[in-house]
Design a protein around this nucleic acid. Structure first.
Lengths: 128, 128
DNA sequence: CCGTATCCGAGACGATACTG
DNA sequence: CAGTATCGTCTCGGATACGG
């Protein structure tokens, strides 16, 4: 692999593989952006309400993964009924704007992309 | 869903779902960045050589998807042996810098994230 | 050289039921 | 309220073989 492409290396610490692979799941980016947009602490149920088509299981799994990565902090209150609050860590706060950049790009160009996909479908279909 | 969070909507044209879902696969980002770093036309075999751990099948699949999205242009030469060249479209060229931003962030913080994951593993293990 | 076709395993995801 | 546990489905991606 050429020098200036070493960032793409297959090493276990390859940044792209380690970081982008996480964003690849269905919910992480969404959760990060919701926490970023909201600004402060959010309870589990609050997140569940905003991202209303996520299942309880997947919200839990996603939050655990983000917590493991040090992007989200979890605070558990020993009360009945239990209360759990989530917020971005400093690392998370640092990351979110970069994700938002990409999200803004996505917003701006999603129509073009969707149109391109349609055109491509037709092109492929016409060759059958 | 609150007004300022409409970007997260579950609609079929939701930018985040439509665009990030694509980057979520294992190879798209890598291929885009290789094409972006290289700058010009690249042959299939050349891409395969640079991203040396991708299978032929996945490189084909990934390039087709990027082509469908209008991010990569494919030029096929009717020769024997066949020659196929790929390059970023204008849309692709517009996108790549945004991805690179995120990649740079990833490079900078991957160590911290990996350390955080290790710590989290230990924390979980100690509770069993 | 640049694909396609087929098979297979792993894991992501959702639905549902249950719990402190 | 905020989780776990379990199960079934489906898609991704790798291995391999073959083709124009």
């Amino acid at each position: 692999m050429k020098k200036n492409l070493e960032i793409f290396s297959n090493s276990p610490t390859c940044p792209i593989r380690n970081v982008f692979d996480r964003f690849g799941d269905k919910w992480s980016v969404l959760v990060l952006m919701v926490l970023g947009t909201h600004g402060g602490l959010m309870r589990f149920g609050e997140l569940k309400e905003v991202i209303d088509d996520i299942t309880q299981k997947m919200l839990t799994v996603t939050l655990r993964t983000l917590e493991a990565d040090g992007l989200v902090a979890r605070k558990y209150y020993q009360e009945i009924p239990p209360r759990v609050e989530y917020q971005l860590t400093d690392l998370g706060k640092d990351l979110v704007p970069h994700i938002e950049n990409l999200a803004n790009w996505a917003s701006k160009h999603v129509d073009q992309i969707l149109r391109s996909r349609k055109r491509f479908e037709k092109k492929v279909a016409s060759k059958d």
